[in-house]
Design a protein around this nucleic acid. Structure first.
Lengths: 245, 245
DNA sequence: CGTCTTTTGTTATCAGACGCACAGACGCGG
DNA sequence: CCGCGTCTGTGCGTCTGATAACAAAAGACG
């Protein structure tokens, strides 16, 4: 379990869902919002775990990963400060298949299960936002499904890079090619091959354990339509305060 | 728009969600439940359509299909009488990407958008069931995503056949290999190749425009784990009255 | 500065599925 | 029973990515 409150604290309002709450609702929740670190690699919950908190990231990225019996896996959704982790609490299942893993360190605020359920039952803005976010999540996993079926590894990689920098709010990410391969469910050597091509074309710069996007526009052109499709639906459904873009 | 009430009418209680409602709730909804045919190929809603009804199938199969710009497509979820079509009504988005298409004819009961929203807001059993079903749907699309990434065409075909007969409640389905290929997002010739192998191994029998499952047990062994994984989660989350399996 | 670990790059082979061309087979309508 | 359209089977070249074995480079650390 990670320490609480070690990094410079960010406001809960950095999370788009919390920020979109009416002032009264937010004020009522504030005393129960507990700040917590999201250290790299932390497994927030594993398949079938009875989860006790809903997490509202304010920075970093959490991945929803499905595992197979043979040890391979694939990321089916990326969650940043636009969303939340632990939807099974208000959806009623109490647990979900799949692993919630911190893929890029950051921090979050979390809300106790009971309090979340109480708030959700009020039929207020939080319920509305939580359900809208869940619908957006369905869109993301669905698009991932068809993308995995039809698009090349390079296209998928471009999509993944774009989705990641959208959630990191910066162009450089600290991640090994090995980990990207795990998340995309492909071979490490294939990622190496793809990053080399992208690098020699000047779209990205690779270093040990980090990738920097140099030309966002060209990267979008190289990615499949899935990136844009999901982004459009997220923009339609979800609130995007100030630095929306 | 299909005709209403032409086939021999089935009870709304054939839909597992409606059947799981408390008697009082069901009685209140009954006058507003409108019987409607689901003819083969009918597109209930297309990407972005503002949908006006929630459909509760009592027979047949509805597919959630995502399309790509190049004309290819993939089915990301199968919906039968265990579920419902039109979740965006209560999730708040009012519309969704993806096409809802009748893949196997049957019939359904539908509920007007306003009435569904009113009932959902009561925080009663219908809300609970609708959200649980939505969570199950997320599981299905997620598993589809990883399945598309990792498993062979034959494994995916077996999974699809099994999921279809589960929803049809019979071993024979009327469908062309061409259509299966479209749904799985693969080549028609590849499906032909796979069905031939399965047929020569005695698992299925193929005829023009129909496939019959002969050996369910062997077919399960040949399918990937994804079929079982989704089934387990559906059984955990959803009600399954009487003829549950 | 040299060793050790981690990460990344290179190459070759192989399997699955695409993509195309075409042949055959079934069944419906006349 | 014949013709035609639809559906299905087959073969083969091509391409992507899996698989494996290995080389090189970049930091970490003493």
């Amino acid at each position: 379990m990670p320490n609480k409150n070690s990094a410079p604290p960010q406001s809960p309002l950095e999370n788009f869902i919390l920020a979109a709450l009416p002032k009264l609702d937010f004020a009522r929740l504030l005393p129960d919002l507990e700040s917590i670190d999201l250290p790299l690699g932390w497994v927030i919950s594993e398949s079938g775990d009875h989860i006790n908190y809903v997490y509202f990231p304010v920075s970093g990225i959490v991945s929803l990963i499905y595992d197979l019996e043979d040890g391979s896996s694939s990321e089916v959704a990326l969650i940043g400060n636009e969303g939340m982790v632990g939807i099974s609490i208000f959806m009623g299942g109490e647990s979900m298949p799949g692993t919630m893993k911190v893929q890029s360190e950051g921090s979050a605020y979390r809300l106790n299960r009971k309090i979340m359920k109480r708030e959700f039952a009020l039929n207020g803005k939080l319920q509305h936002l939580a359900l809208l976010y869940t619908q957006a999540l369905i869109c993301q996993t669905s698009q991932t499904a068809i993308c995995n079926q039809h698009h090349s590894l390079e296209q998928q990689l471009c999509r993944w890079l774009l989705m990641s920098i959208d959630r990191l709010h910066e162009k450089r990410m600290d991640i090994t090619q090995e980990l990207i391969a795990t998340l995309l469910g492909v071979w490490r050597e294939s990622i190496s091959h793809a990053t080399n091509k992208l690098e020699s074309d000047g779209l990205i710069a690779c270093a040990r354990g980090s990738i920097t996007v140099l030309n966002l526009h060209k990267l979008q052109a190289r990615a499949c339509e899935c990136y844009q499709a999901v982004k459009v639906e997220y923009d339609r459904l979800l609130p995007h305060p100030k630095h929306s873009q």
